[in-house]
């Protein structure tokens, strides 16, 4: 997108967020978090505007965006399911649990179900190593997780 073109709704809202946070020391991560929270991902079209406001190159902004696993460049499904793949969860059936969920949803890591309902992401540690395996659905924590618990949480979360 060319910055000189008229800004759309997304860009105008993004600009508000950037201007609100740019006075922080080291503002880029808080800005990206806020944009991600607002839009569910970081739209390509806001990168030039962040770069201009922070006096950075677009490459620098893009470099930061792509360095961190959390930031998505495309929208996720309506629900994001994260399953822990780290050692403590592995020690007590984590791999079998992850495989059972992948099979039940019919998708692999980083994929979204065809109906756009669930995106599956691996995570390396939710700090629930004492009640493993662990999962998180849209910020809701599930300890001693199994397929049944995940299905129940998805049912509760709705469409």
């Amino acid at each position: 997108m060319n910055i000189h073109n008229p800004l759309g709704g997304v860009e105008l809202r993004a600009l508000e967020i950037v201007r609100e946070l740019k006075t922080l020391e080291g503002p880029l991560l808080p800005i990206l978090h806020a944009l991600h929270h607002e839009f569910g991902h970081i739209p390509q079209s806001v990168l030039p505007l962040i770069a201009k406001e922070l006096n950075l190159s677009r490459a620098e902004v893009y470099g930061v965006l792509t360095f961190y696993h959390d930031f998505r460049e495309d929208p996720a499904g309506r629900h994001v399911l994260k399953l822990c793949r780290a050692e403590a969860c592995q020690s007590i059936g984590g791999e079998a649990f992850c495989n059972s969920v992948r099979e039940a949803l019919g998708i692999d890591w980083h994929e979204t179900t065809p109906d756009g309902r669930v995106t599956l992401e691996p995570v390396f540690c939710l700090g629930l190593c004492s009640c493993a395996p662990a999962a998180m659905l849209d910020g809701e924590l599930i300890g001693r997780a199994d397929l049944a618990a995940v299905k129940a949480a998805l049912a509760e979360a709705g469409r």
Partner: peptide
């Protein structure tokens, strides 16, 4: 408080 973004 500042929050990271999933980089170990």
């Amino acid at each position: 408080l500042r929050v990271g973004a999933g980089a170990y």
